[in-house]
């Protein structure tokens, strides 16, 4: 019996070391490891970049994790990531927290993004003003009839509160950019943990309204044209309308590093701003920065 147990243990150890040996012999110099975490809006983009960059630089490894902008920034504050992705600007408190831990966050603008407001294709509503969207999400408007649609209840969909998109939407749409405004999402707003959840629900539910980064919106849901105010033209989100600033809900996307980047991280961030990397931005439905 004794022998069998030790055999079992031996096999375990062997497997473990075999796998370890396999992976380390696979690449030439595995020393450069970049840990990249944060915004779910950016995660696809960051993955595409990481993949392309590693294709060209075999010595670098980049691990990309989602979880939300707050998650990435929290990890940066706790010192557990090299680069935090964020779809919103870092907050004052977060900078203070980071400094308390001896970390100075440095901001890098990496791309731009438009937030699309989406509904089910069956929904006849295709244009809304910012004010109407704000009233829908704050709970003042509860039926599609009130904005020119059918007599249906409105089901509000939002990302979870740790999403940078959520915070940006709250500040830019619900509060219309006003700092004093303390409007909140209606309590019965559905907080879905993923972009996919929002799109799946909008796809099958004619009552639903949702929002998401333009790069994530598939063709089988309807994107709403938005006017800044009553009387302004209704504009659909696109790279062009973001660039000429006619589409009102667009924002910069950021990467944050702990202190000025050095070494492999610096090279990576410089590469991200290159035309090659910015071309990927366009391919994924985001807006490149010039």
């Amino acid at each position: 019996m004794n022998i069998r147990w030790s055999h079992l243990l031996f096999v375990f150890c062997f497997l473990l070391s075999a796998c370890g040996a396999d992976s380390s012999s696979g690449s030439t110099s595995p020393a450069l490891y970049i840990e990249n975490k944060g915004s779910d809006t950016i995660v696809n983009l960051a993955l595409a970049w990481a993949e392309r960059y590693q294709g060209e630089h075999a010595e670098v490894r980049i691990s990309v994790t989602g979880g939300g902008s707050g998650t990435g920034l929290a990890a940066l504050i706790n010192g557990t990531v090299d680069i935090a992705n964020s779809s919103r600007k870092i907050k004052e408190e977060e900078i203070a927290d980071a400094q308390a831990n001896g970390i100075q966050p440095v901001e890098h603008t990496i791309a731009r993004d438009a937030i699309a407001v989406i509904v089910n294709p069956e929904n006849p509503v295709s244009e809304l003003t910012l004010q109407q969207i704000a009233d829908i999400y704050s709970g003042k408007i509860n039926n599609w009839r009130e904005v020119g649609g059918e007599d249906r209840p409105i089901v509000r969909l939002s990302r979870e509160t740790n999403s940078g998109t959520h915070v940006y939407f709250l500040e830019t749409v619900l509060r219309l950019g006003s700092k004093e405004d303390k409007t909140l999402f209606a309590t019965n707003t559905l907080l879905l943990p993923s972009s996919e959840g929002i799109i799946a629900e909008v796809r099958q539910n004619p009552n639903a309204i949702g929002y998401d980064g333009l790069g994530y919106v598939p063709s089988d849901v309807k994107t709403i044209a938005i006017a800044k105010a009553e009387g302004d033209p209704f504009v659909l989100p696109s790279a062009a309308t973001v660039d000429d600033k006619t589409y009102p809900i667009a924002r910069d996307l950021y990467m944050y590093t702990a202190g000025e980047p050095i070494g492999a991280i610096k090279d990576y961030l410089e590469w991200i701003l290159s035309p090659e990397a910015q071309n990927i931005v366009l391919e994924l439905g985001f807006v490149p920065i010039k």
């Binding site: 992976s23 490894r61 691990s63």
Partner: peptide, 10 residues
């Protein structure tokens, strides 16, 4: 949990 790692970690 990490989310994406294109190679086997070592």
């Amino acid at each position: 949990a990490a989310f994406f790692l294109p190679q086997l970690p070592n």
